[in-house]
Simulated scan of single mutants.
Amino acid sequence: MDLRLVWLALGTFAIGVEGFVIATLLPAIAADIGVPIATAGYLVFAYALAYAVGAPVLSATTGRFDRRALLAATAVVFAVGAFLAAVSQGYWMLLLSRLVIAACAGLYAASAQAAAVTLAPAERRARAVSIVVAGTTMAVAFGAPIGAFISGFAGWRGTYFAIAAVGLVTALAIWIMLPSGIKGDRRSLGERLAVLSVPGIVPALLTILLYMAGPFAAFIYLGPLTQSMGLAAGLLPFVMLAYGIGAAIGNTIGGQLADRFGANRTVVLAMITNAVFLALLSAIPAVVPQALVGPVYFAFMFVWGITGWIFPPAQVSRIVALAPNAAPLALSLNASFLYLGTALGAVVGGQIIEHVGIDELGLIAAVFPLLALAVFFATRPRPVLRPRLG
């Protein structure tokens, strides 16, 4: 294995930790800075929106820069953003810090994958990209739970200090390990967006937006959800660990299912099962005896992680099949729409908690995977019927 790819993956690991651990930090953040939990949830909305919009724009404007210098600088600014978040004294400073982090996260993820393609020989490029992306998977499975554990004894600010440290280590490693002269993608923003004209791409992107809005409407508010089950806040790191391990397994299974049964069948399976699990999330405290809520909830989070995360690799397969000649650009937009879905989920979840009640969160969130399913079936290509001759 090329060790340079491991250091690139460390950056995606840091990004993933910050992006997912926030779900366990929101109650502490809300209490510390004196805002309602729904208002704290808009920190996720701002982050996701900045990532979705910033990634293609910044990638286009920095395409001429050397990748080593760009990645190292981006990691440093990411670390500065995490440090500012750690020392922030109010809501708006924390919001601004997360916007900085999000912009760097989107630029780093796109640039790291492009650098991995350049560093690897042609026959190993897919594997090289998978190593960089694996940093995110490891962040979900282990990094976010570790961040939650850190917050347990050092507070949410301690978690951000740790993230800042990882960002600095990444910047130093990239500067030392990567060669200079790695060229970027010089295509303009217009050229990058031209992939939207490929038949089927827009419906596929709308599908992932709606799909991600459902689970993230609930996942972002994992802290108050766990407490609504009658469980102690101190169990949050273990809840996150159960979900994260399930997500890592689901990510692997999703790729295997897509290869064996087809990407379209796999995403349909994911949309249906995710809607079912979100609906069941609202049913746990109502139908499960309180003495069994803890074990059932942990098992539920583990299985939900599996079923929820079979979607992303299958969606990647769909995107590549739709635009094989522009796969990197299409996948970049796929990531942007994924985060737009996260942003939508943050808003929807906050509004549900504020105006309906957390007990109904999963049931209402289940509508979004079903909407994604409706878009999928409404826009899939229809077979051409040919008249019989004779």
Results as ranks from 00 to 15, higher is better:
Leu344Ile: 06
Leu371Phe: 14
Val367Ser: 07
Leu189Lys: 05
Leu94Ala: 01
Ala38Val: 00
Leu371Asp: 06
Arg260Gln: 13
Asn325Ser: 14
Leu225Pro: 02
Met177Cys: 12
Ala335Pro: 04
Ala248Gln: 06
Gly90Ala: 11
Leu236Trp: 05
Ile319Met: 12
Ala263Arg: 04
Trp309Gln: 12
Leu225Ile: 12
Phe238Arg: 10
Gly341Asp: 00
Met138Pro: 02
Arg386Glu: 15
Gly90Arg: 00
Gly181Gln: 06
Arg192Ser: 05
Arg127Ala: 15
Ala270Ile: 02
Ala270Lys: 08
Val384His: 15
Gly190Cys: 04
Leu43Gly: 07
Gly262Leu: 01
Gly214Val: 03
Ala148Met: 03
Gly63Arg: 07
Leu389Met: 15
Gly167Ile: 06
Arg265Gly: 15
Leu49Ser: 04
Asn264Ala: 13
Ala79His: 10
Gly135Lys: 10
Phe261Ala: 14
Ala171Trp: 02
Ala343His: 01
Ser130Lys: 02
Arg125Ser: 04
Gln256Gly: 11
Cys104Pro: 01
Pro381Tyr: 13
Ala72Gln: 10
Val21Ile: 11
Ala263Gln: 03
Pro145Met: 12
Gln315Lys: 08
Ala335Gln: 07
Ile353His: 05
Pro295Arg: 13
Leu322Gly: 11
Gly190Val: 06
Val77Tyr: 08
Val202Gly: 08
Gly254Phe: 11
Ala270Gln: 05
Val384Phe: 13
Pro369Asp: 06
Val87Tyr: 13
Ala279Thr: 07
Thr137Glu: 09
Ile163Ala: 04
Tyr42Ala: 00
Thr12Glu: 12
Ser317Ala: 15
Ala154His: 06
Leu389Val: 15
Val198Tyr: 09
Val375Asp: 10
Ala173Asn: 06
Ala28Arg: 09
Ala144Pro: 05
Thr307Gln: 02
Thr39Leu: 13
Gly167Ser: 11
Phe161Asn: 05
Leu278Gln: 04
Ala323Asp: 01
Trp156Asp: 06
Leu205Cys: 00
Leu5Ala: 07
Ile208Phe: 08
Val276His: 07
Arg192Ile: 00
Phe13Pro: 04
Thr379Val: 02
Arg98Gln: 12
Ile253Cys: 09
Asp2Cys: 11
Ala258Phe: 09
Ala50Trp: 00
Ile245Lys: 02
Arg4Lys: 15
Leu168Val: 14
Thr118Lys: 12
Leu189Tyr: 08
Ala14Arg: 04
Pro215Asp: 14
